[in-house]
Amino acid sequence: MTMLHTVNKSPFESKAFDTCLGLAKSGSTILLIEDGVYAATTGNSVADKIKNTSDINFCVLGADAQARGIEAKLAEGIKVVDYEGFVDLVAEHDTVQAWL
């Protein structure tokens, strides 16, 4: 089974991102949405966690990154998806878990 995880909180405000990372299995996908997109910027204190987790696919919802003006600052290796890409991720994975 593969799981799509969504995280919608800034990693600096909530433990949602860390908890998700701790429980996500190899081969699963973490999609950062809403305030969750702040985790995806370069040079922040969680950037290394993403960089060092090579067995999980990281995606970020482009519209949320654009809205927050961080599109140019997104770390390498994080795939940007639009809402239809979000839908495709939901369809491609067996289950969806929202880390609220």
Partner: peptide, 19 residues
């Protein structure tokens, strides 16, 4: 909270993708 906005955007996209 943005949740309701996100849900509307997601719903529209899902319908557009034929789901």
């Amino acid at each position: 909270h943005q949740a309701a906005d996100s849900a509307i955007q997601f719903t529209k996209a899902a319908l557009a993708r034929g789901h």
